[in-house]
């Protein structure tokens, strides 16, 4: 299990190769990449700045990964979440799950993202032509997490 919070970008291919690490049990690798959009709530977004709570954020991500490993038959998990100032098209988050079969790998990947959205301490602020604004939490994210 690996959890990283960083300002630097990440290389998806390299990260997946490292996670697989030649594990011959692996028959499925599911991944999700979240990226910055140039529009949100009808406003143009030029910069998205992510803030976290050092210490707690890492601990929360580790707890979410531990929960996924207890619920799904998977082998390994990688979560990378960026913080700092990002621009449209930039990568924000990467979740990779390895397992024997696709069903559990897909499910665990969705579970991880749904939980991360509602339980990991990150906050987004976006720059728009009307000024900077904090992004509000969405009820739809709570509903997505409640499915599990």
């Amino acid at each position: 299990m690996t959890v990283r919070v960083q300002t630097a970008d990440f290389d998806v291919g390299r990260e997946i190769a490292l996670l697989r690490g030649g594990d011959k049990r692996v028959g499925a690798v599911a991944s999700f990449i979240g990226t910055v959009r140039d529009v949100n709530d009808d406003a143009t977004v030029s910069t998205l700045t992510l803030e976290h709570y050092p210490g707690m954020t890492e601990k929360a991500l580790e707890a979410i990964v531990a929960e996924a490993k207890s619920r799904f038959e998977i082998y390994d998990v990688l979560v990378i979440h960026r913080v700092g100032a990002l621009a449209p098209t930039d990568q924000i988050v990467l979740v990779v799950v390895t397992g024997a079969h696709r069903e559990t790998a897909f499910d665990a990947c969705r579970f991880l993202m749904d939980y991360l959205k509602t339980r990991a301490p990150f906050w987004k602020k976006e720059e728009t032509p009307q000024g900077a604004r904090w992004v509000d939490a969405r009820a739809s994210d709570d509903e997505a997490a409640a499915r599990w």
């Binding site: 979440h81 990150f122 906050w123 987004k124």
Partner: peptide, 10 residues
């Protein structure tokens, strides 16, 4: 004690 708005990561 940390006080903060609802989280918006991902």
């Amino acid at each position: 004690l940390a006080l903060f708005p609802p989280v918006t990561g991902g």
